[in-house]
Design a protein around this nucleic acid. Structure first.
Lengths: 136, 136
DNA sequence: CTGCTTGCAAATGATTTGCAGGAAA
DNA sequence: TTTCCTGCAAATCATTTGCAAGCAG
């Protein structure tokens, strides 16, 4: 795990510091799309004394280098996701849960649809679904 | 215009104040999904002296009553949209533009798709596309 | 070495809140 | 009248920033 993280950071020209490794590792280990606050608490257990400013800086660096993506919800905090391949999110109503949804068949369907139906003056780069749902 | 707004507010049990009317009117007149800041500047021209706190409160009230929806973007400010029928948004890369995208054919396609393919334990309430694109 | 990173604490800035006075129903 | 709403200014709180000291390359 550490070796892979180190390689990825180095490949982007970033210095490999324990703070960055800890942040990236915390994200890779979480399927919950944690907020910065959550990451701070997870990382602090392992490395007490790490400062919040540093975690924010690490997160921003990782986002800039496309190792991590930022996702927003209706609340006021950003959430982070270390899985950057194209996927969709299911927002569970009345909760702060955000669930990943991978569906290649759907992606193909959408690609085909927009290949035919083009939107004037716009070139589509990416499509993400926000599925709003609730538990049955 | 005023009559319709008044009716809608009253139908939700809200008192019809000039501040609320002004905020709602500003949103109905804008296709730009304005931020609170933008709404404040538009409303202030017509009604100088209106306070920012009141505008935030009006926006929240309208959102609570489902007359307006909040939309998120990658920046730090919320944006607001008075058109609450189901539609999608095109986010223009490297700009703060958000363009509405209505497409009944697409909606039908998605409805059919998810009617067949159901997601375990989840009941879908709504689907919104975030289309990321750029001007050609 | 030396330039990128960290820690710290202060700053920022959008949004919220408490409360007294005001206006809609 | 009575309840809801507004204005104001202070408070919040996530995130950012400036800078001296530290560490990776």
């Amino acid at each position: 795990m550490y070796a892979q993280i180190k390689t990825k950071l180095a490949a982007k020209g970033l210095k490999v510091t324990m703070q960055r490794v800890a942040v990236y590792e915390a994200l890779l280990n979480s399927k919950e799309h944690p907020s910065a606050e959550k990451i701070i608490s997870v990382v602090s257990e392992k490395y007490p004394g790490i400062s919040t400013g540093t975690i924010y800086k690490s997160l921003e660096t990782l986002v800039d280098k496309n190792l991590v993506m930022k996702i927003k919800n209706d609340g006021d905090k950003m959430r982070y996701d270390a899985f950057i391949d194209s996927h969709h999110h299911i927002y569970i109503e009345n909760s702060d849960k955000i669930i990943d949804y991978h569906d290649d068949e759907l992606n193909e369907l959408l690609d085909n649809y927009f290949a035919k139906k083009n939107i004037p003056n716009i070139q589509i780069e990416n499509i993400r679904l926000e599925i709003i749902g609730k538990y049955i």
